[in-house]
Amino acid sequence: MKQLWVVVGLLALGGCQNMEGMMPWVDMGNQVAKNAGYDTDSKLAAGIKEALITGTDRASTQLSQTGAFNLKLPAAAQPVADTLRQFGFGSYVDKVETAMNRGAEQAVAEAAPVFKQAITSMSVNDALGIIRGGDTAATAYFRGETESSLRQRYQPIVEDNLKKTGFYDQYKSLLAVYDKLPLTNKPNMNLESYVIDNSMDELYTRIGEQESLIRQNPMQQGSALIGAVFGSGKGG
């Protein structure tokens, strides 16, 4: 009987291609285990959270490496970049873009605990709501529920790391040169928001990729708990 919840979990959440057809078995398996005294909900939720944390750790590690980001000035600012390069001031553009990317990489590393805390604080019901979804359901749910609040906490981290890379000094230098050019219709560039938006988008994308890998091969990509929640029975 001690292995009952594991057997039920492996049967119910076997990662089958036709998860919708398996849901009656999932629900029945959970209920059988509950009746036998095993709190499958908390164990399933713990496995889902662990998968998300694993994905977040791996995504953060990848994106914190030098060269992980390749941010260019936003589309609205490309005329600025093109004009500066045309007049021989391309180095100013390059320095701003380099500082943007280093700031994004450093911010991802520093913000990782913020994302992990949000995952840890998810309720059991919230975590269980993920099971019926597809390969990146956990990431999509996590993003939908946390992006707004996480962005507020992520913004000062990005700004602080942009300061460390000298972004603001380089940005001011770029604008100073640009302002001296005989041009009109100069765009208002909010590059802080641009860096925040793009770095968060990339982080969520990478977390989703990691979740998909875990679902495809949970025992190899995750832990014993993750394997019990998402593994076995893939041929169903």
Rank of each mutant, 00 (worst) to 15 (best):
M22G: 10
Q155E: 08
Q106F: 05
F142L: 02
Q216A: 03
E20H: 15
A118T: 05
F167R: 05
L11Q: 03
T146Q: 08
S193H: 07
G88M: 08
K186A: 07
A138D: 02
G134M: 06
M22L: 10
N188S: 11
P24G: 06
A109I: 04
A76N: 05
F115W: 12
L10A: 04
R215T: 00
Y38D: 13
L10E: 14
P218V: 02
N198F: 03
Q170W: 00
M28R: 11
L84W: 13
V124K: 14
Q220G: 11
V229R: 00
N190V: 03
V229S: 00
A140T: 12
N198C: 07
G55D: 15
L44F: 10
R215K: 13
V32N: 13
G133K: 10
S91V: 13
Y154W: 02
R151C: 03
Q152M: 10
L191T: 12
D197I: 00
A104K: 13
A228D: 15
S42M: 02
E145L: 10
L63P: 01
D126L: 09
V124A: 06
E211R: 02
M219A: 12
N30M: 14
E110S: 09
K2S: 08
E211W: 12
L10H: 11
L52F: 10
T136M: 05
R215P: 12
Y168E: 12
L162E: 02
L181P: 02
A107D: 08
T56I: 10
S232A: 06
T136A: 08
Y194N: 05
V96G: 09
L44M: 14
V32F: 13
D41F: 03
K234W: 01
G9T: 10
D197S: 14
G227F: 01
K164Q: 06
I48W: 05
L203F: 06
L13C: 07
Y38C: 04
L213C: 13
T146L: 04
E110M: 10
T136P: 11
A51R: 09
K172C: 00
Y171S: 02
Q65H: 03
L71I: 11
G133S: 05
N188Q: 04
V26P: 00
G47Q: 05
K72W: 10
N35R: 15
C16K: 04
L73Y: 11
